[in-house]
């Protein structure tokens, strides 16, 4: 397996085509770190890559490397170029063949996100005033379904999930009618992931969804996401931002490793070739592992 060559059309189908994506934040003349001459800081520096459909992509990097910024742009939360200092191109190739230029307007971003994307935040992403069931229903309600239908579908999804997990503890179904404040953080996060999946999005994006979870829950979440994708492996793409590098690399097909806003290696890396600790260490220091040098 080779790294995906984003600049080559011959590399196969593409879900996201990213070209020279740059995010630059303006600073005041009296900027931090005593650097009075700095007028801007580069968050993402000319990122170019192609993300294939149906893959599992882990975006890794140290804090401040631009992972969340990249994910927010991919998800359509940041779309307006002038507001966020974004330049470059981001195309989303819809399963139907249509191409959406995501970096258009806020309206384009909203439509794109609601139609194709499921998003999981870190903890506490459920609305506190609604029961867990109603939180699951929100994307369906937003899509125009009735409350009754939405609740039925949400209930079915939770039942399926509980069946999949077997009798390994309390089921989510027991907590459907509780408020978010009445359930544990692990259960909360499972509901959040289910909410992101309930609309059958083409892409599931998750930003450090396991940061507040214990290792068991962490693995269960990964498994849950994996099984969701596995049901339609060619249609469902998962993009995950995580601090748990080893777990993420073990789970992912591809890795986008960011370092100070730059994409290490200039392209996506094959996850199965980054499976050793030494390779990860090298990535942290900004070097490519030996076995990947030829890809640079």
């Amino acid at each position: 397996m080779s790294a995906v060559d984003s600049t080559s059309d011959a590399a196969g189908p593409v879900l996201f085509r990213i070209r020279d994506l740059m995010v630059e934040h303006s600073l005041d003349s009296h900027s931090e770190a005593g650097n009075d001459n700095a007028t801007s800081v580069v968050v993402l520096n000319r990122i170019s890559m192609d993300i294939p459909p149906g893959c599992r992509l882990a975006i890794l990097g140290r804090s401040g490397s631009g992972k969340s910024t990249l994910l927010s742009i991919l998800s359509g939360l940041r779309t307006e170029r002038s507001c966020f200092g974004i330049s470059g191109e981001l195309e989303f190739h819809c399963p139907g063949g249509r191409i959406v230029n995501v970096l258009g307007s806020e309206r384009v971003g909203d439509t794109y996100r609601s139609d194709w994307i499921g998003f999981v935040l870190s903890a506490s992403s459920l609305l506190s005033g609604f029961s867990c069931l109603d939180n699951l229903c929100l994307p369906l309600l937003r899509a125009g379904l009735s409350r009754q239908t939405s609740r039925q579908r949400a209930g079915q999804l939770v039942d399926r999930f509980d069946e999949m997990n077997g009798a390994t503890g309390s089921t989510l179904g027991e907590h459907l009618h509780k408020l978010p404040s009445e359930v544990s953080s692990g259960q909360l996060q499972r509901f959040a992931i289910l909410r992101a999946m309930i609309n059958n999005p083409a892409v599931l994006m998750a930003d450090e969804p396991f940061s507040n979870l214990d290792p068991l829950n962490h693995r269960a979440m990964l498994k849950m996401i994996g099984e969701w994708r596995q049901s339609k492996p060619t249609e469902r793409t998962v993009i995950l931002v995580s601090h748990h590098w080893q777990d993420a690399i073990a789970w992912a097909d591809y890795v986008a490793f960011l370092h100070k806003g730059n994409l290490v290696g200039g392209r996506l890396l094959l996850a199965n070739e980054l499976g050793n600790y030494e390779a990860i260490e090298k990535l942290v220091t900004g070097q490519l592992p030996d076995n990947l040098e030829h890809l640079a």
């Binding site: 909203d110 439509t111 998003f119 459920l126 994307p139 937003r142």
Partner: peptide, 15 residues
């Protein structure tokens, strides 16, 4: 804060 969460779910600013 809630509005931010709703945007993540898919709600637009207008809605």
């Amino acid at each position: 804060s809630e509005a931010g969460m709703m945007r993540v779910i898919g709600f637009s600013n207008q809605s």
